[in-house]
Design a protein around this nucleic acid. Structure first.
Lengths: 241, 241
DNA sequence: CGATTGCCTTGATTGCAGTCAAGGAGCAAG
DNA sequence: CTTGCTCCTTGACTGCAATCAAGGCAATCG
């Protein structure tokens, strides 16, 4: 393992994989339609790593020898700009693979990865994985599907950034994190408001102001808990505003 | 073929493939490391189609039965918003495949495609292509690489949209389309200024104003021809501005 | 317990880019 | 040559969001 990757606790190797982790991994679209044995083969030499908040997982430009599946916690992918600002291009949580494209191409990571909150990750070496993909058409196509999903989310992100106002982006974010389609809902934000703001391409102050504006539409926020009077009404903000 | 796809001229079938087209196709990363015979197999039932300006190739939501390689011309991918605005998420020209991800997943196109200027496209049926990919590991990994490239361009686009001012985005666009790294360069814009503006996430008026601002940095534009006094100086705008 | 720290909110101001509107350049057709 | 058209440019104005700055709230720690 490269020196960048240091587990918080001493555990390493496959022993860190809990039974619930296995269930999680096997339900990932990346391993859809594959036998447990085949999945196990893909995970050869993979390791469970635990990281504490703010740890750096990898930096842009590092050789991409591993890709990861989040077992628990949150991580963010971002780019740094010369003047110190950073652009968050994605955030991943339980069950989601990331850095797959970079690892498969044996290239370098095109973004930085940082732990948002204490996380457990499965680090899967690219070399063995690619070997399996070359032999297993199902796996290769699963990789395509996973990357395709991510691409669609990027397209959606670009669309939102260019066509929606800050308030509308916040409204859409809230709606997309609601369990129900309509009626009153209480949800709790997945992470720091500052990080959400970054994901939505705005400053924390602006995010705060947008939440304040949305109070007029039945959105009450107290800390990380948000109560929405009517999800449907929030969904329509883009149309009537 | 779906009714949306209507060739401008009467030609159809493989006969439309010029020798120079074959060279172009074989040099695509999508078919890297593959034998001419294997490539031919992938192109079974593919057709060359010619389209005139402003033609609609497909709409968001259409079943993605084909993907395309541009033989000549320009096409744009975009999304429509409820209020009529449109977000351009990509533009493709000679040698570039597009709509690959959608076709491979047998899904629907997530964006609209429109012909920017008179184009010749190779339309490749997804069904046969996917069958080949399942049998040919090299092809499957080439697909991954192609999608990975596109993903990186999306990440870069998101970064530019969130961190750069309109003028800086224009400057970067110009630099990225220069042949040389420094010194004086003359280039001609690949398409309408209005389309470039859309690709850069701004209004045509703003694009025009940005070009005007850049005159102070040695950029002279006359129609679609742009002369840059010093590419390096332009490249540094992001830093000192 | 009071103090410190981190996170969030709010206020005041500035600047950038969108919008509306008008005018100019180039081109094709008549 | 004139007309009409499209595309581009420029101007004036407005509005949104970034920035700078200050204050509130809660959790942590000595």
């Amino acid at each position: 393992m490269p020196e960048k990757i240091r587990p918080v606790n001493g555990e390493s190797g496959r022993s860190g994989l809990l039974p619930s982790d296995l269930v999680l991994i096997e339900s990932t679209p990346l391993f859809a339609e594959m036998s447990p044995a085949a999945i196990q083969a893909c995970l050869a030499d993979s390791r469970v790593q635990a990281y504490s908040r703010n740890a750096t997982l990898f930096n842009r430009g590092d050789p991409a020898k591993y890709f990861f599946i989040v077992l628990d916690g949150w991580i963010k992918l971002f780019r740094d700009t010369p003047d110190g600002a950073q652009t968050v291009v994605g955030a991943f949580t339980r069950g989601q693979p990331f850095a797959l494209a970079a690892a498969i191409r044996f290239g370098v990571y095109p973004v930085n990865a940082e732990i948002v909150e204490h996380s457990r990750l499965l680090a899967i070496p690219a070399a063995n994985f690619v070997r399996r993909a070359r032999e297993n058409a199902v796996l290769a196509m699963n990789i395509n599907a996973t990357m395709g999903d991510l691409m669609q989310s990027f397209v959606a992100q670009i669309e939102r950034l260019t066509t929606l106002s800050a308030t509308e982006r916040v409204a859409e974010f809230l709606v997309s994190h609601c369990s129900a389609e309509n009626g009153p809902v209480t949800l709790h934000l997945p992470h720091d408001k500052a990080l959400i703001a970054a994901r939505l391409g705005m400053e924390p102050e602006t995010f705060s102001r947008c939440l304040a504006k949305l109070r007029a539409y039945g959105v009450e926020s107290k800390g990380v808990d948000v109560r929405i009077a009517d999800v449907q009404a929030l969904h329509n903000i883009g149309a009537d505003k």
